[in-house]
Amino acid sequence: MNSWISFDGVSFNYNEQSVFKDLSFNIPVSQGVLGIVGKSGVGKSTFLNLVSGYLRPVKGSISVHGKKVETMGAERPVVFQDHNLFPWMNLIDNVCFGLKAKGLRRRERYTAVQEILTHTGLLGHEHKLPSELSGGMQQRVGFARALSIEPDCILLDEPFGSLDVHTSSDIRHYFQRQLSEHHSNAVLVSHNLDEAITMCDAILLLQVNGKYRLIESIEKSSESQASQLAHLKELIAE
């Protein structure tokens, strides 16, 4: 089976306490978005930090698109919950940062991001600083910044939490369209189970003491989703 992300016996400790113990799974290419859910403190963000390459497992290995994760890189950009924009750069320079890292010249960068800026509703605000933008716009910049480099895999750390319902829905649809157009994958960390069920094709439920449950396939019909949501809630409550 051809998988895009695989964990092979991954263990990770934090302050000598085990966060993950022998975590192993494979997600097939057909399951484009992997959701990570669980109670607070079970290691959702740690999971993302391991996939990004920011943290290294004490044991085992992680592969994304067949390549072992060893360092951070543009193959797996992160969209953060708190936007994490560079406050000294204007909007367009924030969006273009990944392209600058790729070595594109200023004019090439600006031309390359015009479409993303249009789709994310950021056109006309290019020269504003992050402090001059609303929270929703800042989050759209965060998405545009990650999408601009057209990565194979995007890591999302609760990116919709700070958005209003309307903006969140708009960005979600745009984001899903982008993923399918570019055949990209994503790891979505979320505390919102509805969001996870709607957006993800597979869900990894993290539990205390390094335990986990993998729901390998999320049905997309509304009745199935309701029952899957109920099942997920039960599992979390266990």
Partner: peptide, 18 residues
């Protein structure tokens, strides 16, 4: 900020200047 820059593919020179 360093995390975000590195996750977007920045090398040390770009991290330093930007």
């Amino acid at each position: 900020h360093l995390y975000a820059a590195k996750s977007l593919g920045a090398n040390y020179r770009l991290v330093f200047t930007d």
